[in-house]
Amino acid sequence: MSSTIASRKRRNEQIAFWLFRLLSFGVVAILFYILYFLVSNGIKAISWEFITQMPEDGMTKGGIYPAIIGTLYLVAGSMIFAFPIGVASAIYINEYTKDGVLKKIIKQMTNNLAGIPSIIFGLFGMALFVNQLKFGDSILAGSLTLGLLALPVVIRTTEEALKAVPDTFRQASLGLGASKWQTTSKVVIPIAFPNIITGLILSIGRVSGETAPILFTVAAYFLPKLPQSIFDQVMALPYHLYVITTSGTNVAESRPMAYGTALVLIVIVLIANLLANALRKYFGKKVKMN
């Protein structure tokens, strides 16, 4: 009697185990297939010239250099904007506001901000930065728009990082007569730093792949030169990819270029993620808890 129960238990255990194993392997398999697909199609396009030359012949030949540079500018610009504001807001929410209506409202708003589709950000950016503030289609307008998009991510990850710092550290510092700001800057932020950095870099990954917010604010269809100031337009990788696969002068001929562009974009995002891990490990070691 009991042995049949035991054997049934074992069988169910086996089924559950294999089911979960199969599903998670499936996820990994899909990811690898995407990578394989991109690499096998795109590797032919990759060459030194591809990443250092201007596009030529209606984007069927040449490289994607201005798009890479444009993306880097936009990422950097958006982070300069989003990082300080995001981190400061998170510190305010987590360290300074007491539990109450105000805190709830701020948190709800940042959550809502994160849920807004990116095309809406693009539209808003165009209305505010491009038209209202008269920045025109420019790196500045694009960076600000992307920054807005990244803001909730930065706030959320920073907040989580701060929340993960045990309260006894704050109490120990305050107990020694330190002020709130001394406590936050000398104790809390250094401990939370690895996780804050992780959040920052993950949002870089997110921002670098966005197309919609830059569509109306900065991205140039074809601009075979580098920008001179923050009021210039630039090309950007995701938009370039979109353009040459859908509305280029010769879609079929630029197909290999499209795969190459996609591969470069993926690699940039992957590098950002690996960097995030490396930095977290590096800073994590410095503030290792036991």
């Binding site: 045990p166 006894t168 550290f169 109490q171 120990a172 510092s173 107990g175 020694l176 000398k186 104790v187 250094p190 401990i191 410095k286 503030v287 290792k288 808890m289």
Partner: peptide, 11 residues
């Protein structure tokens, strides 16, 4: 001054 339950030296 105060000493806490778990040792909590700063990093």
């Amino acid at each position: 001054g105060m000493v806490f339950q778990k040792p909590n030296p700063f990093p």
